[in-house]
């Protein structure tokens, strides 16, 4: 009798919810451990460090509370580097989105040689920042640069491209767009290929021209893809370092000095890890705000 009731329980009573879900969570454990150790942990510790005058090598590390953040608020160099960074990121993301979209639309039309175009558009992405920086520093060199060679050849006045404040961020941005637009191009292309063709056919039957079809069908349906690209590109380009380090060293006169260059200087050249951490959290806060703005304007639901 007892055995029967036990069996009834085994068969009849459903498995508790937690036991059902347990294997799922167990599969997550390895990632979660790495996340805690290498992402969340260092972030919490970084914030802790930002509350101290933390010279990496000195035994005495006085507690400052939010003193580093107060210093940040009053630091002219922080605001200058932030202005440079925002300008660079805005130009680069704008350029990448426009060029990536244009290139993907072009390739989707499958013109002659479209496979070669696809290859050419993506190839610069595989270069390291050092290679890209060295190549383009040569291109924009004042005396022996390729650009000034052609400018001179067509009879225009040569320029000190990287030596002038008005040119330096646009040139760095242009260089970065050439280097990185292959990624947005690829994602846009995937997004374009995902839009069902019958939608375009129906529009054509209704007399919609190509421009209308692009603005009223393609762009709205690409919104999720655009959001993904804009958010990831902003995050990537707010952290700009290598191009400026190699091509201009932040010059002329700090005109291309980025937040991450400043952070690197403060942390690793001046050993002020506490202040460098506060710079990092300041930048993270800005990135968070920009990301939320992007979600607000591009994050609408798309159904088709």
């Amino acid at each position: 009798m007892a055995a029967t009731s036990h069996e009834q329980r085994r068969v009849g009573k459903p498995m508790p919810r937690w036991r059902k879900l347990l294997p799922n969570y167990l599969f997550l454990v390895p990632y979660f451990v790495f996340f805690l150790l290498f992402l969340a942990g260092p972030n919490v510790y970084g914030f802790y460090i930002s509350l101290f005058n933390w010279d990496i090598l000195l035994p005495n590390k006085p507690f400052l509370g939010f003193g580093n953040y107060q210093e940040l608020w009053l630091d002219k160099l922080w605001w200058l580097s932030l202005r440079n960074t925002v300008l660079f990121a805005a130009l680069t993301v704008g350029g990448n989105v426009l060029l990536g979209l244009f290139a993907s639309v072009l390739v989707k039309q499958r013109p002659p040689g479209h496979q070669i175009l696809r290859f050419l558009f993506y190839t610069p992405v595989v270069l390291s920042v050092a290679v890209m920086g060295v190549i383009l520093a040569r291109v924009f060199n004042t005396e022996f640069g390729l650009l000034n060679y052609y400018v001179d050849m067509v009879g225009l006045p040569t320029q000190k491209w990287l030596g002038e404040q008005r040119f330096v961020i646009p040139i760095l941005s242009l260089s970065t767009v050439w280097w990185t637009f292959g990624f947005p191009f690829l994602v846009f292309l995937a997004g374009l290929l995902n839009i069902p063709e019958p939608i375009y056919e129906a529009a054509r039957i209704d007399g919609v021209n190509r421009l209308q079809s692009f603005t009223h069908i393609t762009l709205p349906l690409l919104k999720p893809v655009t959001l993904f690209i804009v958010v990831t590109q902003f995050i990537a380009h707010f952290k700009v370092f290598g191009q400026m380090w190699i091509m201009t060293l932040g010059g002329p006169g700090n005109s291309s000095y980025s937040v991450v260059m400043y952070l690197y200087d403060v942390g690793w050249r001046f050993f002020r890890m506490g202040y460098a951490s506060s710079l990092a959290f300041g930048l993270a806060a800005i990135i968070l705000v920009v990301t939320l703005i992007n979600f607000r304007f591009l994050g609408g639901r798309v159904e088709y």
């Binding site: 932040g250 006169g253 002020r272």
Partner: peptide, 22 residues
């Protein structure tokens, strides 16, 4: 003790002068 930071501070400002930024 903070020679690198001192160098960096005046060098950046002097470069701004030589490049007509300041």
């Amino acid at each position: 003790a903070n020679i690198t930071e001192i160098q960096n501070a005046y060098q950046q400002e002097f470069e701004a002068v030589i490049t007509n930024v300041k």
